[in-house]
Design a protein around this nucleic acid. Sequence first.
DNA 1: GGCTCAATTGTGGTCATCCGCAGTGTGGAA
DNA 2: TTCCACACTGCGGATGACCACAATTGAGCC
Lengths: 210, 210
Amino acid sequence: MSTPLAHIVDDDEAIRDALTWLFRTKEVASAEWDSAEEFLAAWQPDWRGCIVLDIRMREMSGLECFDVLQERGNTLPVIFLTGHGDVPMAVSALKKGAFDFLEKPFEDNALVDVVIRALANDAKRQASQATQVSVTNHLALLTPREQEVMNLVLAGKFNKVIADELNISMRTVEVHRARVFEKMGVRSAVELAQLLAPSRDKGSGSSGEH
Amino acid sequence: MSTPLAHIVDDDEAIRDALTWLFRTKEVASAEWDSAEEFLAAWQPDWRGCIVLDIRMREMSGLECFDVLQERGNTLPVIFLTGHGDVPMAVSALKKGAFDFLEKPFEDNALVDVVIRALANDAKRQASQATQVSVTNHLALLTPREQEVMNLVLAGKFNKVIADELNISMRTVEVHRARVFEKMGVRSAVELAQLLAPSRDKGSGSSGEH
DNA sequence: GGCTCAATTGTGGTCATCCGCAGTGTGGAA
DNA sequence: TTCCACACTGCGGATGACCACAATTGAGCC
């Protein structure tokens, strides 16, 4: 598990140093990358924190870097910095999920505020996703038959009906049911339903709404 | 129930007419408003569709109008049009929840595409919220005591325990419990938990994440 | 061939839920 | 005052859920 870092991606060393210094004075841990390529090569999906991304860089631009990150399933908030951004660029970036878009020159405090909000945002997202992952792991412990029974239990059916649908005895259903509760760490069907309710999507898996 | 309309809010009659004509050729129903004030005076929370909002107008600006709408709980997607927008303005609008931000001059087709996406977006949001509203309405039918019992049932507690906590008899709990199921249109605690799971927020009620 | 694990089933009993029947008390609306 | 919604209660029975004890079968593994 990595500590949350504000990743500064900029090919201008003077700016990187200034930002690093700025963040350090505000007690925000940061890391420096002098190109999008270098950053992308190092990037890991389990990194925490946020990304401060300059748009104009010598090789790959910040926008291209952002696209690659999104394809790879990045969840870190991305804050764009730009010297001469135009409106369509900013709109496009935000609609694609960027966290913020700042034009130079910006106030130091403004950037720090945004970064701190981004870090908080990521921490919250991370926390809410942790329980989700835990649930998925527990779910993986269930045998196929147990999952089958669990789904029917969650459909609100009686053991008798479940037994009938699966062509097994009621007693067997009871055993599976008990094992499901045990493995999932709950004590009743109600708790199970609440545990699984937020993670039960049957629709499309697309993330953006634009 | 109102039909979905693209509300054009602009004090320039020539532009309104052009947009109305444009939308009509694309079979998008629209309405015209020649000032933010007039639109706000007419606005109703149950309107469906989207809002095409010019930023620079004689009296109240589009941005101010947007703020008022957000305060009133507007859910319609808002598409900003502007002649000379700057990046901070666009970023601020989008972060506050605007659907899109277009600079003039824009392609007719680009605007129509955005409007159509906005209409689809609203329709989807509307549909998913309809069931939510239904649940809330059913919830409102419950007497205070019934809601109390329901919450304890959802906490996975036995009737016996609930009776104890409320200092009433088990039989009374059973009666309330049965009424809850009846009024909510479910047949078991599991169904109730699933029905209410997505709408159970205990945290802050803020809408934006920025 | 033993070993483990998943899946299966039965018996008998305890506890919880659900429900009909029957009744009391209170406060507000007609 | 009469009527009604709400909350409350007891009894007894039917049904469902849960559990300890006990056991069989088949698949995969050392």
